[in-house]
Design a protein around this nucleic acid. Structure first.
Lengths: 337, 337
DNA sequence: CTGAAAGCGCTAACAG
DNA sequence: CTGTTAGCGCTTTCAG
C-alpha cells in the first residue's frame, strides 16, 4: 500500500475519469452519475485515498482548524475547557491546535501569527488584557474570529464566552450570610483580572445588600495556591472577628486551607471558606471545599461553536454568551449561632 | 491594512522583483544580493506579510505540525505531558494539534486519518494496545513517525518514551520494606495496561528479593479514583495483617484514601500507602501522598524531539527513551516497629 | 544573482 | 453529467 501518497489524479486515472469529476464524486456534490460516483468512491477506498487538506485549504481558504491560545493548559480551568472545545471542534470536523502563552505578550503574538500563517479559522484566547493596544488592534484587523474567555474592555470587537461571575460571587455571599456570617473577607486576584474582579464585586455587592454585615475586607494577591497562602496568612495575622472568607478561585482557596492549617486553625470550625470553580480537587481536598461551580467544558464547546459559525459568515458581529453557575455545598463552611 | 491577505507576489511586485527572488530573500537562502534582500524584507514587514503555510506545506510536504492523540487531556498525566510537548514543538517551530480518543478505537482512527489528511509530520499516542492489528498495521505503513507512551508489543515499529516503571515499582517496595512492612498489597490496573503492569511487576519482584516478606496480594480494577476506592474497599474487607499498599497510580491512591476514610481507617496510622505519578494533587490531598514521581513534562518534550528528528530523516529507525523516576516521601507511610 | 516556468494537490467556473 | 481550463500561494529547478 502506498504510504498515504495517493492523490486525486491517481484516483481519477484508475477510475477512468477526470480529476474534477473525481473531486465532485468524493465531495458528494451534485452532478455525478451514481454509477461513476460509486466507481470513484470504490477506487478511493480501495487505494486508501486521503485528501490532502493542505491543498484543499489552499484553494478553499478554509483550514478546518481553530486555535486555542491560553496561558497554560495545566490550569484545570483550561484543561476542562480545552476538552470541551476539542470535542465540539472534532464534531464539526475541525482540529484544535494548542498554544500556551504563559500570558507573555511576545509569546502570545508569536503564537497568534503562527496560527494566522496556518490560516486557522478562529482562535479562542483567555484574555487580551495583558497585551498592548497595537497588538490587540492587529488581532482585530486580522479578520479572524476571536472569542475571549474574559470580559474585555468596552467596545471590544471580539466575541466572549463567560460564566456569570458576579452572580457567582453573589451566590457565595448569600450563602455565607444565610449561615450567619457577618464579618467576612475576600481573597481576590490582582486588579485587572476581570473574571476574578467580577466575582469579588458580586460578593461585595451582595453582602452590602444584606445590610447587617460589616464591609468585607478585601485582600489582593496572585491567583494561585501560593497567592492564596500568602493572603490567608496575612489575614490570620489580624482577623478582627472575621468568620468566613471567599476565595475568588479554588487555587486561592487551596492555598488558604494550607495557611489555616499551618496556623493551627481549622476549617470550618474556626473559619469558613468558599471557593470558585469547582475544580476536581475541590472534592478531594480536606475539608472538601464548598465552591461555586463553573461549566468549563461547556464554555469551551460554546466558544468553538461561535467560532465555527462566524468562520462561515464573513464579517459576522461578535457574539456573547454567559453561562450560569451554581453553588456546590461541601464541608468548608459552618453556621454561626 | 490588508486583513492578512498579503501574498508573496504582492511583496515581489512592490519590491520590484520576481516572486522567486522574493521567496529566496524571505527564506534567507543564498543567492540574493544583500541590497535586494533588505528591500524585500522591508516591504514584507511594512505590509505585514505572513507566508501562507498551507501553500508552503503543499509544496514542501512539511506541515510543521505534530499530533497529540491521547485518551483525555484531563488526565493530569497527559496534561503535563501535553505542556512539555507543546513547549518543545513551539521551540522547534511546530504546532501541536490535540485529539482526545477516550481510548475508543473508532475515534482514535478517525483522528489518526484526520491528522494524516493534514499531513502532520508525526504523532504522539499514549497506546496502541486497544486497537486491532489491522489498524496498527495501517498506522505503521502510513510512514508517519509515531511515538508511543506505553510499552508496545515486541517488534513494534514505533518509537517509545517511557518512565522506568519497573524501577519505580521497586523503589516503592524497597521503601516500604525499609519501613518494616512485611505484608503488603498492590492496587493494580487492569491487565494489559503495560505501564501499570510494569509498576506492579517491579514492586512484586523487589519484595520477593527482600525475602522475609509475604507474597503481596494483588487486586485489579479500573485505574481511576473510583477503581481505587473499590479495590481498597474490598481489601479492607479482609486485611489479614496487611500494613501497606502500593497503588500503581495516584488516582487509584486517591480513591484508596477515601475508601480508608469511609471505613474509619487512618492513613498512615492504620495502613501505609504509596502512589505513582506525583500528580499535583498528591501534595494537597490529606494525608499528603508519598509517591513515585514521573517526569511528565520531560516525557512530552522528548516525544516531540524524537518526532521532529525523524520527520527530517526519511525511514529513520524507531528510538526508545526511558526516563528515571524518584520517590517523593510525604506523609502517607509510617514505620512498623 | 535573478527571472521564467513548472507544479505541489485540489477546487471551481465554464463549456461541451 | 463530465471534461477543460485556471488557478490558490508558494518553492524550486533551470536558464540567462
Amino acid at each position: 500500500m502506498a504510504t498515504i501518497r495517493v492523490t486525486l489524479s491517481e484516483i481519477a486515472r484508475v477510475a477512468g475519469v477526470d480529476v474534477s469529476t473525481a473531486s465532485r464524486a468524493l465531495n458528494a456534490r451534485y452532478g455525478v452519475r451514481k454509477e461513476v460516483r460509486d466507481r470513484v468512491l470504490g477506487v478511493a477506498s480501495r487505494l486508501g485515498y486521503r485528501p490532502n487538506l493542505l491543498a484543499r485549504g489552499l484553494i478553499t481558504g478554509r483550514s478546518q482548524t481553530i486555535g486555542l491560545l491560553i496561558s497554560d493548559i495545566r490550569n484545570p480551568f483550561f484543561t476542562d475547557l480545552a476538552r470541551g472545545a476539542e470535542d465540539a471542534a472534532s464534531a464539526a470536523g475541525y482540529d484544535l491546535v494548542l498554544c500556551n502563552s504563559d500570558l507573555d505578550p511576545d509569546k502570545h503574538m508569536k503564537y497568534f501569527w503562527s496560527l494566522m500563517a496556518k490560516r486557522v479559522e478562529g482562535v479562542i484566547m483567555n484574555s487580551v488584557a495583558f497585551l498592548n493596544r497595537e497588538d490587540v488592534r492587529q488581532m482585530a484587523e486580522s479578520g479572524t474570529p476571536i472569542v475571549l474567555l474574559n470580559r474585555p474592555p468596552a467596545r471590544s470587537p471580539f466575541s466572549t464566552v463567560l460564566s456569570d461571575n458576579v452572580g457567582g460571587g453573589a451566590l457565595a455571599a448569600e450563602y455565607l450570610v444565610r449561615l450567619g456570617h457577618r464579618r467576612m473577607a475576600v481573597l481576590a486576584g490582582p486588579r485587572g483580572q476581570t473574571n476574578l474582579d467580577d466575582r469579588a464585586a458580586g460578593f461585595l455587592r451582595a453582602v452590602q445588600a444584606a445590610r447587617n454585615c460589616a464591609e468585607p475586607l478585601v485582600l489582593r494577591g496572585i491567583y494561585s495556591a501560593t497567592g492564596g497562602h500568602a493572603m490567608m496568612h496575612k489575614l490570620i495575622g489580624s482577623l478582627n472577628g472575621i468568620t468566613a472568607v471567599f476565595a475568588t478561585n479554588d487555587a486561592i482557596a487551596f492555598g488558604a486551607i494550607r495557611a489555616a492549617l499551618d496556623a493551627g486553625l481549622h476549617i470550618p470550625e474556626d473559619i469558613s471558606l468558599v471557593g470558585f470553580d469547582d475544580v476536581e480537587m475541590a472534592a478531594i481536598v480536606h475539608p472538601p471545599l464548598t465552591t461555586v461551580r463553573q461549566f468549563r467544558y461547556e464554555l469551551g464547546a460554546a466558544a468553538v461553536e461561535i467560532l465555527i459559525r462566524q468562520a462561515g459568515s464573513k464579517g459576522a458581529l461578535p457574539e456573547h454568551r454567559k453561562f450560569g453557575v451554581e453553588l456546590v455545598e461541601r464541608m468548608s463552611c459552618r453556621a454561626i449561632d
